[in-house]
Design a protein around this nucleic acid. Structure first.
Lengths: 229, 229
DNA sequence: TTGGATCCATTTTTGGATCCCA
DNA sequence: TGGGATCCAAAAATGGATCCAA
């Protein structure tokens, strides 16, 4: 009897569901889900995220919409180390190489996804067995003015380069808060893109990712600084 | 030990392979393929075409290229009735609703596919058991001036309507040689298209098809008229 | 540390077409 | 009768991310 709730009908309902999970181990969540806890995440990289999607009633599937469609809220799990700092970057979305350059920031997939996010903190240290890792506090976040400016700045810089057909020159070093990195089955994967002359060519698929340093500051703002006041 | 040849390296090699199949039954082909002959094609609509792809060494898979990539030749099976007339229309390609209107005929997927076609005639009467249906003569065809003009005329008319956002007004009645018809899992399927104002909307996916009357004339030109001279 | 590489499940798309009722 | 509806297999794309060598 797996627990598979209907989509939450309000932000308050989603929030209350998320609060109720804080402190539970992944083993406890998996039991209610009738799914087996993998020993390692190497061959189950999306397992934690999908477990939480089911448990919280996310409804978007693989549609290009926020996970909670009714509420316009995106769900992201955020693995943290023992000190509470993110151990990984956070995938945002794939990059439509053909038209990202003619898309306005306000109409972009990045902005649509990041406008409102339910972060679920999860222990991510590799020396903790997956089953014993615990869910932390949830955080309902929208970027403030500073964060929005950072993201838009990176967006403009990176999509500008892509629009010039120079995506191959982009490395993960670019972007203060958000970077562009490969997002593919492997380094041989190819999708259609544009070269410097606007001609169709095959390119390695890319995605936008939030740097761990950026999500770390989000957590600090929410959990650390308020207490210090 | 299924027969799975390498792609043919010349038109002559492909032609010789195709000639060798004339007169064989589908059961005989299936035996060399280690595949079972379906009783009806209702739930195996693409079976004959894929059987011949494997047997002849087609290499494009589901890429947007001619089946014999090296040779620029498209493979099409053509089911005919007892009198040798096509019993079905022939699917050409799906229609990229977003950009077909700004594509030149000479750069179109239709022209790339139909520039050179290896037609394999197959008995298609429903009262002949699938296993007993026989392969007919192959035909290596390129459209002549008249056929090209017909196709380009239909292309210009149909893509013009689509470009105006009027795809919903198109029925299978339009087009002399080539028509536009639904190409989808069912009538509820939707893809992105443009409305009259150029706004993104969800539309039923469509494809280009050759009318049976058009492919019938191709066969007449190749097999009937020469003998009558 | 972290940028580049990779992994799984599921959905969507593509290419192969034929079915069937008004 | 043929235009609209539908069917399957396989490949590609998407959304979920973590791994690991330098």
């Amino acid at each position: 009897m797996p627990i598979r709730p209907e989509p939450p009908e309000s932000e308050a309902e989603l929030w209350s569901r998320a609060r109720a999970l804080a402190g539970l181990s992944l083993a406890q969540l998996a039991k209610d889900d009738d799914s087996n806890v993998p020993e390692k995440l190497l061959h189950a990289k999306g397992w934690v995220g999908q477990l939480l999607e089911r448990r919280l009633g996310a409804s978007a599937g693989s549609k290009d919409e926020p996970d909670f469609q009714l509420l316009g809220i995106e769900l992201k799990t955020l693995p943290v180390d023992r000190v509470g700092r993110p151990c990984e970057s956070t995938f945002v979305c794939t990059i439509p190489l053909l038209d990202v350059a003619v898309t306005e920031w306000s109409q972009s997939r990045v902005w649509r996804k990041l406008g409102r996010v339910l972060w679920i903190i999860v222990e991510g240290s590799r020396d903790i067995p997956v089953a014993e890792r615990r869910i932390g506090e949830p955080l309902l976040w929208s970027p403030d003015a500073d964060e929005t400016a950072l993201l838009k700045g990176d967006w403009d810089e990176l999509t500008g380069i892509i629009g010039r057909g120079d995506v191959e020159s982009i490395t993960g070093h670019l972007g203060q808060a958000m970077q562009v990195r490969p997002k593919a089955r492997d380094s041989h994967a190819r999708r259609r893109g544009l070269d410097e002359d606007g001609v169709l060519v095959e390119r390695l698929p890319r995605g936008f990712y939030l740097r761990a340093s950026f999500t770390g500051r989000i957590l600090e703002r929410a959990f650390v600084l308020p207490r210090a006041r």
